[in-house]
Write a protein that binds this DNA or RNA. Sequence first.
DNA 1: TCTATTATGGATATCAAGTATCTACAATGT
DNA 2: ACATTGTAGATACTTGATATCCATAATAGA
Lengths: 160, 160
Amino acid sequence: MQFSKSTDYALHALIHLTLSEKDGHIGIKELAHTLGVSVSYLSKIMSKLRQDGIVRAVPGVNGGYELARPADEITFLEVIQVIEGREQLFECSNLHSQQHQLLSEEMAEVHLPKHRGSECLVKKVMDGAEEQLHQYLRQHTIQAVVDQALNRQHGFTSKK
Amino acid sequence: MQFSKSTDYALHALIHLTLSEKDGHIGIKELAHTLGVSVSYLSKIMSKLRQDGIVRAVPGVNGGYELARPADEITFLEVIQVIEGREQLFECSNLHSQQHQLLSEEMAEVHLPKHRGSECLVKKVMDGAEEQLHQYLRQHTIQAVVDQALNRQHGFTSKK
DNA sequence: TCTATTATGGATATCAAGTATCTACAATGT
DNA sequence: ACATTGTAGATACTTGATATCCATAATAGA
Ligand code: SF4
Ligand code: SF4
């Protein structure tokens, strides 16, 4: 249960793009060098970000990447979901077990009979956990992190 | 980013143990059959739970497993950590990159120079997310899930 | 238009982890 | 002793993450 390194790279790449926004397009070479990862590998990650409309890519001379939207509209959750996929944290793998019959029949009676897809409390707890995590990650944007970093630095240098 | 199936099985096994607490020891065969998974595989999972003091095992005739502590002291977080391990959700893999130099130097100045292990805001956000998740999972126990299931069933049958 | 530059997508290789099973061994109660 | 039951190690299979290479397509600028 860990985020993949790709997610790590994606986040760092986006931060670099945000910091260099005024410089126009950023080449994959520069990005890869800054992050310390191979160009070929990073391309794959950037492609995903592009396909999901988080960055724009421009081929050709002086081409490269730029953010497709303001950094304060790019949340951690989005980036993570693009790279990691959107599968649920907890997938029932016991749906045909005796136990599931027990726990879900108990549940089924409570709600309307129509509500077939009703799940037991185990799943409900786990889904709650996921929602909790998502809420938190939705509240944090790339811009916020960059801002805080710059503010702190600024606060320090101006004090000295 | 998903919990492994082992975690799923572990949770369900513990629920079965809780429901059958009065019946004394529960054999691995019964457990495996209830969950619909092979005995050999489930043994591995139960072993982990035993090593971490969540269940007790008794070999020999009429042996089997039982909870080592009351079910209301067994949290989802514990179970998950036993099975999934205790690695952090987010591990920095860019610690030697140019970017890390940038972001962490900015940070370093703010805190006392002694505080070497200071990390940037990216990591702080991700660690916050993990803590958020852990808090939630700490608040939910096996007993709570079982109780709710039984209460609901009871509430239903007594009404009808 | 031609060319150098740059991203794209497919194929592929490698490695680690999760899933799953089997077997020899040790501990227990009768 | 003896049948029962869990333990631990070895092993095989599958999947996903990581990483690279190359042929192709798109673009800007000469
Ligand atoms: S978690 Fe609940 S719904 Fe999912 S398989 Fe287990 S008993 Fe069924
Ligand atoms: S997340 Fe922050 S501390 Fe971690 S590698 Fe990236 S810049 Fe460094």
